[in-house]
Amino acid sequence: MMRFHISRLACAAAIIGAVFGAAPPVAADQMTHVVFPGQSIQRAVDAAEPGDTVLLAPGTYRESVMVSTPGVTLTGMGRSTVIEPDTNKAAGKCAEAGNGICVIGTKDHDVEGVTIASLTVTGFTGSGVFAMATDGLTVRNVTAVKNGVWGIAQERSVHGVFRKNTARDNGDAGLFLANTIKEEAGAADTGGTVVERNRLEGNRIGITVRRLRNLTVAGNHLTGNCAGVFVVGDENKPRAGALTVRDNTIARNNKSCPKTARLDALQGSGIVLTGAEDTLVTGNRITGNVGASPLSGGIVLFKSFVGTTSERNRIVDNVLEGNAPADLVNTDTSKSNTFEGNTCRASSPAGLC
């Protein structure tokens, strides 16, 4: 069967040149499939083979896209490449779930090496980007705005890289990473997943890491959410934790969010650890997070909602200022957590600064 071919070759060549510049040519058996507004992204993705790139010209595309071929890169040309829901309610599992872009492997085999880059995904009732059963997924320079649940979400996956994305005004977390969503299970090892230099604004929670291990959250900017970073565990084993939250700027996450069936009302939470173990929280600058929720404060250790304590977490060398009810809050009953070298003025209980 003939591989996907697009007309308007002169325009396509100009676009490819603008994106790739003087970069070395790709291998002879790799192709760049250029898509223009009004054409089908899904058709190009279905035609792509491992190593191929699907390049979206600037403009608005109204569809959901499913990626299941390994090694495919789906990229726009920046924020002006916009993916929105199809008002005709087109069929497909990604659209049916209310998501914009889906990267999905199988129960027995992860889809490897997919990249989603340099585009905007907005207005979906589910998630802007949703991934499951992936290995080495990269999501970079993606803007996920005003999606009903998560901006960018991933479950049951390893070796992910989430870098330089913007997630704003999404219904739940801007970035959501979990072991599995629909069933109980112990924390999964992510193989060193990295969440780095993202901007999270106006979401319910900026970044949620739920029942995972071996992961780094670093250099992100979080502001205007109800809560900045949540590291969530429970009684399942392995326990959540063994991860690092470092060098983030977490300021004025004072939006108010009502109580849900799973969680108290949220406002003014910087970093919350609940039911987690062996987590290092260091080098963060956390300022002006103010609220009256049980979870409010700069850095908060909180016994999980099923009664599981947080154990052996290290809160060291952070700078905290103007958080309320306190810069450091420890309501956990465990005695194994440590607070050292933090710059702060107020703690609950006293003596943690």
Rank of each mutant, 00 (worst) to 15 (best):
V319K: 13
G186Q: 14
E112C: 06
A131I: 09
K164L: 13
R262M: 05
A242C: 07
K93W: 08
S348M: 11
V129R: 00
E340L: 07
G126W: 01
P85M: 00
K164V: 05
G298T: 00
N214Q: 07
L9R: 13
A261R: 04
A185F: 12
A14Q: 14
A28F: 13
V149D: 14
G275M: 07
P25Y: 09
F36Q: 09
V139W: 04
A326M: 02
T87L: 13
D172F: 13
T274S: 15
G224R: 01
G98H: 04
L55W: 07
A240W: 10
S68K: 02
A13Q: 14
Q30T: 10
V45K: 03
N220K: 04
L320N: 02
A173Y: 09
I299L: 03
F36M: 05
R163L: 11
P58Q: 10
S296V: 02
S256P: 07
V54H: 00
N99A: 05
T216L: 13
G206V: 02
V35T: 06
L273M: 06
V217Y: 01
G206K: 05
G351L: 04
V111K: 00
K164W: 08
E196P: 03
T223P: 02
D46N: 15
V19L: 09
C11F: 12
T166D: 10
E184M: 12
D46S: 14
N203D: 15
Q267G: 14
V209L: 13
K164H: 13
D264H: 06
N330E: 12
A144H: 12
N337S: 10
L243F: 05
I41S: 04
R43A: 15
N248F: 01
R239V: 11
A18K: 14
I152N: 09
N248P: 08
V245H: 04
C11A: 14
N165Y: 04
G71V: 08
V245T: 05
A240T: 09
V145E: 06
R210Y: 08
N313S: 00
S293T: 00
N284P: 02
A350E: 15
N337R: 02
S256Q: 11
F124N: 01
A18M: 10
Y61W: 01
T180N: 15
G160P: 06
L9Y: 02
N141P: 04
R168M: 12
I205G: 01
T125N: 03
G351A: 03
T73C: 15
A167R: 07
L200T: 06
A153P: 09
G341K: 06
V34P: 12
R79K: 11
F230I: 15
Q39D: 15
E184N: 14
N254S: 06
R43V: 10
V103I: 12
N214A: 02
G322V: 02
A23H: 05
E155N: 06
A227P: 03
T53L: 00
F4E: 03
H159L: 07
D135G: 08
C353G: 01
N323I: 09
T53I: 09
G322K: 00
T333P: 12
T244P: 10
